[in-house]
Design a protein around this nucleic acid. Structure first.
Lengths: 200, 200
DNA sequence: CAAACAATAGTACGACCGTGCGATTCGTCA
DNA sequence: TGACGAATCGCACGGTCGTACTATTGTTTG
């Protein structure tokens, strides 16, 4: 039998852990608090996650898998080229507001938490973000091949600027929360895409 | 007499606290760890800072004052217009590598820490970053008045994109650390300034 | 030099942390 | 149904956290 009781609990733990981590960060995530949310005793929960460090990795793994499902996969169904690139961007922007992460993007919270704390969790985070930049660069390459973006465009440069703009937008959104923030970020992306289209 | 012994210690505490906070974040900052660095007992230190929450505010205050001295003030000595705007950007970029913040920009660490934790520390952080965006916007306005930037440029839009690009760059730098990161960010800023110059 | 005061140390407290371990309940299958 | 293994609990441990309180230094000043 594949679906045992423990598996269901395990899924529930990951769901709630991701949600909680988005509020308090990976470092602020606590076994007691999580246990209470899941409806388990602290030791019952501990048996599932083996250790705090492993829990952090599990949370990242869960977030990465959801990111793939919600952002990357749908974009791959869009037509090759600029439409797909745009889908990655807009999917990413709504990712930060996903209902299962009430405290906001868990990657962002993890970046500050882990950026000076080596270990498996940090390694996994870094590789995931590296993959994301690479996915953006690949989509840019495809758009060049399709003739949507200019031939002499550096796809990694575009990926860099897109990534930076995305996280920068997130900082402005979470911290200052000016109502015009979204419109300005959209304008910035349009300018960026415009310059990727126009031959230099 | 103005310069008592306690004042000197106080300055030393702020210096070391800023340095330590840049490594572990505001939330990760600990009275015991700080006391050891300063060479004080935990209670001796506590007498200086009144409370943990107040220590966080003090650290932010210290960082803000240094930011003003190291980034804003020097830029104001540059010629009005684009040179001054460029000085703000380049000053900001080197701010993230200041020797007194070995763990990187303390504002960035604080943003993730405080973004879901209301209180005086968060308020101070938000106002400081709001001020920074505003300073960028003001510099952009001046550059428009000087005829360096095009007349129909929205200075707040430029400030938004500059701010976002700066923090986005920082994420890429700290997390992934590709050696080409700096060059790409510089290219992005050049493109941004170019589009601010060119009449649309 | 001594009195007055600022600065620091010592110690204790309650709360919470992650973790181990033995006991107990519960779901599953012969 | 009865037994076996997985899932969960209760409890305790050592450690660290921020914060009081009191005692003891050290520094300044009349």
């Amino acid at each position: 039998m594949a679906l045992t009781k423990g598996d269901a609990t395990h899924r529930d733990i990951l769901r709630k852990a991701l949600s909680l981590a988005s509020e308090v960060g990976l470092g602020g995530l606590t076994l007691s608090a999580l246990a209470e949310r899941v409806g388990l005793s602290k030791s019952g929960l501990f048996a599932h996650v083996s250790s705090k460090e492993n829990l952090e990795v599990l949370v990242l793994e869960e977030a990465i898998s959801r990111f793939t499902d919600l952002v990357v996969a749908p974009a791959l169904k869009e037509p090759r080229g600029e439409p797909r690139f745009r889908a990655l961007i807009s999917g990413w922007l709504s990712w930060g507001k996903a209902e299962f992460m009430p405290g906001g993007c868990v990657f962002f919270a993890a970046i500050a938490d882990l950026d000076d704390r080596p270990g498996p969790a940090r390694d996994r985070l870094v590789s995931s973000q590296r993959d994301w930049v690479e996915a953006l660069a690949t989509a840019a390459k495809v758009a060049i091949a399709e003739g949507h973006f200019r031939a002499d465009l550096d796809p990694h440069q575009l990926a860099h600027e897109t990534f930076a703009l995305g996280y920068g937008h997130y900082v402005l959104l979470r911290l200052i929360g000016d109502p015009k923030t979204e419109a300005r970020t959209n304008a910035a992306f349009e300018r960026l895409l415009e310059s990727a289209r126009t031959p230099s």
